[in-house]
């Protein structure tokens, strides 16, 4: 094998390994695999207070990830936070009266939406609004209430 062929092989291997590294980053490290090819369907839910919920926060049901938050906006008429949830299309039989709550994973962890299935026969479809929601627990409010009741009890 001559010098030129060796060089070309080395350059070819370099480019292939570089692209493989990029592919590994894309497929193994990023969320591309979670999202790719699955547009799912969208649900909306209004909350009085969403705490620290952001776009891309997970949506869980019974601890299993079933989708993610795709958008958060403030509704200027009701002054509620309207959260758009993108649910993976394989979870397409959630009952109509499914309720949504905002939970925190662990004591200091990130916030996520937990769905709880209801008992209705009809299922949710793209664009439906979740009627029953429970806002995020804001730690300051709880501490405030606790101190207030404590002070009231001391009298």
């Amino acid at each position: 094998m001559n010098q030129k062929a060796k060089m070309e092989i080395a350059v070819g291997a370099f480019i292939v390994f570089g692209i493989l590294a990029l592919l590994m980053l894309a497929l193994k490290v990023s969320n591309l695999t979670i999202l790719s090819g699955d547009d799912g369907y969208e649900l909306k839910a209004g909350f009085d207070n969403i705490g620290g919920l952001k776009a891309r926060s997970p949506v869980m049901m019974a601890g299993v990830r079933v989708g993610q938050v795709s958008n958060v906006v403030l509704d200027l008429e009701s002054f509620e936070a309207v959260v758009t949830l993108r649910i993976f299309s394989k979870y397409n039989n959630l009952p109509k009266d499914t309720s949504a709550s905002i939970f925190t994973s662990g004591l200091l962890g990130e916030q996520y939406i937990g769905l709880e299935a209801g008992g209705e026969e009809q299922v949710l479809a793209d664009g439906d609004v979740l009627a029953m929601t429970q806002s995020a627990v804001v730690l300051e409010q709880i501490i405030g209430q606790f101190l207030f009741s404590k002070a009231a009890g001391d009298d």
């Binding site: 894309a26 193994k28 490290v29 990023s30 969320n31 591309l32 695999t33 979670i34 999202l35 891309r56």
Partner: peptide, 8 residues
Amino acid sequence: QMQAKVDF
């Protein structure tokens, strides 16, 4: 955790 937080 990595896949959940790293955006492509």
